[in-house]
Simulated assay, not measured.
Amino acid sequence: MPIRIPDQLPARDILVREGVMVMDDTTALRQDIRPMQIGLLNLMPNKIKTETQIARLIGTTPLQVELTLVRIGGHKAKNTPEDHLISFYHTWDEIKHRKFDGFIITGAPIETLPFEDVTYWDELTQILDWTKTHVHSTFNICWGAMAAIWHFHGVPKYTLPKKAFGVYRHRNLAPASPYLAGFSDDFSISVSRWTEVRADDISQDMGLEVLMDSPETGLCLVAEKTCNRLYIFNHVEYDSTSLAEEYFRDVANGTPIEVPANYFPDDDPDNKPLNRWRSHAFLLFGNWINQVYQTTPYDLAEIGKHHD
């Protein structure tokens, strides 16, 4: 089934060109099924790029998905046109009465700040608490994952001596997990962060299971079964050129940065990078959507009634 997004959203044309099925409202209403309700809290500066990346991954599952774009109400975006936000985004206050089958919280380029120093930390903690009663399953990405695992479990983040930056081999630590169905024993994932969460800080009584890690960059994917939460600290959603754009931006700004590891052929930034994580990105998001579909109540009103 296709993904249902607003007709004028910039992501629509990109996804159609890539062969992702996009559904208009008229067609959606003809289908006698309840679409999956997925919310995306987009904390990234360039919201158009991020919403396209996420829509691409959830738009190729065999289920009808309706994507709702959400932003922090008290924070002004610097890299996204105001008319785009007005046209396509809801503040959390505007949608907090609703229930969602799935809710995605993105990363943000603020990871070296203490959580409490983030200008919208109070609103984000309210949103995280709200997910316990209004969301069936939450998928937290990079800084969003660090914020969520800190808020719910007190697991800290640590600043790295240098940026973890590149494409790294990862290990499948839980082949029986429904989230890793079809995964290889090892696979590549793009990494871009200045901080890390450590496995030693995760205790058995937290109800957390480590599903993926990398010998070089540590924890990657953690699942929390009782609350249907996923925490991923790396960027499976990235485009082929995302790491290159970050690298050339930092070079242009004079920010010290190394060439992303295992990314440009021959480690030469003049060479076109190869995407080696795309298939597992689709697989992970497809598995998550399928797991949500298999376990969410048909009646949205029932969501959250049995969460801890």
Rank of each mutant, 00 (worst) to 15 (best):
M212W: 09
L211G: 10
M206V: 04
F183T: 10
R171D: 06
F183A: 13
G182D: 09
V197G: 03
M206H: 14
F183W: 08
E209G: 00
I189A: 09
R193G: 03
M206Q: 14
R171E: 09
P178S: 10
Y179T: 01
Y179V: 05
S214T: 08
G182S: 10
P215W: 03
P178T: 07
A174M: 11
R193C: 02
I189C: 10
T195C: 12
N172R: 07
E196T: 15
S190K: 06
S190V: 06
T195A: 09
S188P: 07
I202S: 06
S188K: 13
L180Y: 02
M206A: 12
R198K: 15
F187P: 13
A199P: 00
A199N: 04
L180K: 11
P178Q: 09
F187D: 15
S192L: 10
V197R: 04
N172Y: 07
R193Q: 05
S203M: 06
F187A: 12
E196G: 08
L208E: 02
H170N: 14
H170T: 10
R193N: 04
D205I: 01
S214D: 09
L208D: 05
S214L: 04
D185P: 00
Q204N: 12
H170A: 12
S192A: 15
V210C: 03
Q204I: 00
D186Y: 09
V210I: 15
S188R: 13
R193Y: 04
D213R: 06
V191C: 14
